[in-house]
């Protein structure tokens, strides 16, 4: 299991990197960040990029910064760096919590937050977090820079709105004043989740004022659970309201059955995980007050 041959460059600027993607488009040029998804695919010979553009030498891409109240993570921010970052814990505690579920520390030491989002594995944690947080992805291509909202970014399994000559340079995470929870059900520790739920719940005067919930493992992309959010809106987050939100959130789901579970089992698990996530986020929202 060795990767196929490719050519390689590690440019010093984003424009240079984009130029390389354009120049080598016919060779199926791809961007390399941590490589924790791409290199295994190449080892399996399921990916045959003819050219890899490594972002490791581009200065600044490993920065974690605040742009006003928006947390911005560059394309080379390793998952473990984000996990340890005080800024991330304060500005995006949901992301911090989810990072603890991403594979294992040795993978997180190499893998990047943005790379995982760009890879768009429907079972992965970080795309789900991006969707729940209404993240924006900054893409730079030959035509310049654009921002893609998470709701438009994930288009299918391993398929995103990113063009093949664009580079995802950063993810922008707006603030959420409220409680958070990331809960997942995985067969074994560090394994891909069967179902994962990212939940944000804001509570004022005992009632839910805003909820943002997304789930992995219940569709071809992470799924925003709008019906559950609406069911919670204005409610006292007690067990009845949460139960109603779970019913609403899982009512229309039609997950594909696979090795890890039939559609029915995935929904069963999604119900339990969704309930736990809302409960915990709501509790934390109360605590914040």
């Amino acid at each position: 299991m060795k990767p196929p041959s490719f050519r390689y460059s590690s440019p010093a600027t984003v424009p240079d990197a984009v130029a390389l993607l354009v120049e080598h488009a016919e060779e199926d040029a791809r961007v390399l960040a941590g490589g924790q998804s791409l290199v295994p695919l190449m080892n399996f010979r399921l990916a045959h990029p003819g050219f890899l553009v490594d972002l490791r030498r581009v200065p600044g891409l490993d920065s974690i910064r605040m742009d006003g109240d928006v947390l911005v993570l560059g394309a080379m921010v390793r998952q473990s760096a984000a996990e340890r970052s005080a800024e991330v814990r304060v500005a995006a505690p949901l992301l911090a919590e989810a990072l603890g579920h991403v594979a294992h520390p040795p993978i997180r030491n190499s893998g990047t937050v943005v790379g995982s989002i760009a890879h768009a594995d429907p079972a992965a944690e970080l795309p789900t977090v991006a969707l729940a947080m209404d993240a924006e992805m900054t893409a730079v291509g030959p035509q310049g820079e654009r921002r893609i909202p998470a709701a438009e970014f994930f288009q299918g399994p391993f398929t995103t709105a990113l063009a093949s000559d664009e580079i995802l340079t950063e993810v922008r995470l707006p603030p959420f004043a409220g409680g958070h929870a990331f809960v997942e059900f995985a067969r074994t520790h560090g394994n891909f989740a069967v179902v994962g739920v990212a939940a944000l719940v804001a509570v004022t005067d005992g009632r839910v004022t805003r909820a943002a919930i997304a789930a992995s493992g219940v569709g071809p992309t992470p799924v925003r659970m709008t019906a559950a959010e609406e069911a919670l809106g204005g409610a006292v987050p007690d067990s009845a309201a949460i139960g109603a939100a779970v019913d609403a959130g899982t009512a229309g789901l039609q997950p594909a059955g696979d090795l890890q579970g039939s559609a029915a089992t995935r929904i069963d698990i999604a119900r339990a995980v969704l309930r736990d996530a809302i409960e915990r986020a709501a509790e934390r929202a109360q605590d914040r007050r």
Binding site: A240, I242, G243, A264, D268, R271
Partner: peptide
Amino acid sequence: RAAIRAAGQVSSAA
């Protein structure tokens, strides 16, 4: 879960 469902235990919510 399949065995538990077959025994009539639906998944619980709240």
